[in-house]
Amino acid sequence: METERETEIWYAMRATYRREPDAMRLLEKEHLGCFVPMQYKISIKKGKKVRALVPVIHNLLFVHARPSDLKRVKSQVAYLQYITDTRSGEKIIIPDNEMQRFIAVAGTYNDHLLYFQPEELNLSKGTKVRVTGGDFEGQEGVFLKVKGARDRRVIVAIQGVIAVAMATIHPDLIEVIQ
């Protein structure tokens, strides 16, 4: 009866030793939501260039599940671990709207996306904006200059876990949010 009242929430999790594909298969088999930020990488195999979809940050995945369902699955699998906030020690739980924004951008597998650790960016220096056109229309983030890019980019961040900088967006397609 208790599981009936629980709502599904997004957890930031780790699958140790690069086992995020195994974790994804297991979670899908258990009918739990899962998202791993991926991007295409070119590598050389047997003298040929091969383009493969690989995780952006190894061991990182996001799980959408009821707490009791996740606890049950986690008890069967030792390599699946919660990511905790270093200050409070609490499990990192991501609000639905923040996660949907992140998935809308990171789920495109766009080659021009840049990923950052939270400590690499000072989001307080940026301006809160909304994209009004193009591939990322309707997305909100912080407009900021990032290393590795010539111009300023719109950043969508998950507090304390990961941030993604969108491809270059023409300034005419950006509006400032008050």
Rank of each mutant, 00 (worst) to 15 (best):
T127M: 13
Y79P: 01
H64D: 01
P171V: 04
Y79V: 02
V164T: 13
G33Q: 10
K147W: 07
T127E: 15
A23H: 04
P55Q: 03
V176L: 12
A149G: 07
V129R: 14
L80M: 14
K125T: 05
D85P: 01
Q139A: 03
F62E: 00
G107L: 12
G141Y: 12
S75Y: 08
A104Q: 15
M24C: 07
P21T: 11
S43K: 15
V129P: 05
V50N: 09
L114T: 09
L121D: 00
H112A: 13
I155Q: 05
E90F: 07
D69N: 15
R66S: 01
G134H: 09
L121I: 01
I93N: 12
Y40C: 04
I42Y: 10
I158V: 13
K46V: 08
Q139L: 14
R130S: 10
E20P: 03
D85F: 02
F136W: 08
C34I: 14
Y82R: 05
C34M: 08
A149D: 11
E119K: 13
Y11K: 08
L60V: 00
N97Y: 03
A106V: 04
Y40I: 11
V73A: 12
L113C: 09
K125A: 11
D96F: 09
I92D: 05
V156T: 06
P171S: 04
E8T: 06
L173S: 00
R72H: 11
W10C: 07
P37M: 05
V54C: 03
